[in-house]
Amino acid sequence: MGTTGTDIRYLVIIGIAVMLLLFTSFLLALIFNQRKKLKYQQSMEKLREQQQNQLIEAAVRSEETERHRIAETLHDEVGAILSSAKLHLLGIKSDILDERDQQLHEKGRELLNEVIQKVRGISHNLHSNILKEFGLNEAIRHFIRKIAQGTVLHATTALDDNYKTENPDNDISIYRMVQELVNNILKYANATEFIVSSTHRGNELDMVIFHNGDGLTQEQFEELRYQKEGLGLKNIQNRIILLKGSIHFTSGSEGYRINIHIPVKSNQP
């Protein structure tokens, strides 16, 4: 008995159906397998990110602790010794000295005063007392006022006073970043004018540092932060990772702009 047209029709239909079924099963198996793999990779990635954040956090905290220790040593020990030295120096009766010794005595006093001032400055810089007592905005204002004092630099701040501290540790990181960036501008950019401004909206804080000197571009920042000399930039990057924020360097005809975006929702329970 020969094969009829209907037989062939069934053969083709059943054949295609079976093949399609097999193909679909394979595809589904692959999809499930890949999803499972992806889920596992995501959990591993999350774990890796957590570990990285913990390491960065530990590094930042130990840096901060070390800063405090140095600031306290400078203030309590070096400062005290210098003050004592000043007292001793003032104890010398200068009127019985000859003119040359009087000049030397005067110069010594001036230098000692200068050293005491410098030590106090460094100690305050390293310590975050103002930050803790008066908040981020006041600490930045104080810092900017201090660095612009006695220079031709025109420095202004336009900080959003709606911002209230949610997490003091985050504020220290933000403050240190501003400090590092402004110090970099002073050291390398030859700027005559700069503005530090901030906007607080919802749970987000946007800081902008604008200056009219020779600043960094995004490409330069990316390049420098991996170099040994770029330790400050590496620290900035670490703090950005820690705060889950972002930093962008842009330039325009008027000058350079650094935009820092930080989510400021409290980390505390």
Binding site: T3, G5, I8, R9, L11, V12, M19, L22, F23, L27
Partner: peptide
């Protein structure tokens, strides 16, 4: 490729018989 081949395999395997009988 797989989708194309699983469908066309039977179509071309029975190409001549189908054209003759249906």
């Amino acid at each position: 490729i797989s989708l194309y081949e699983v469908i066309t395999f039977f179509i071309f395997l029975f190409f001549y018989p189908l054209h003759q009988k249906d």
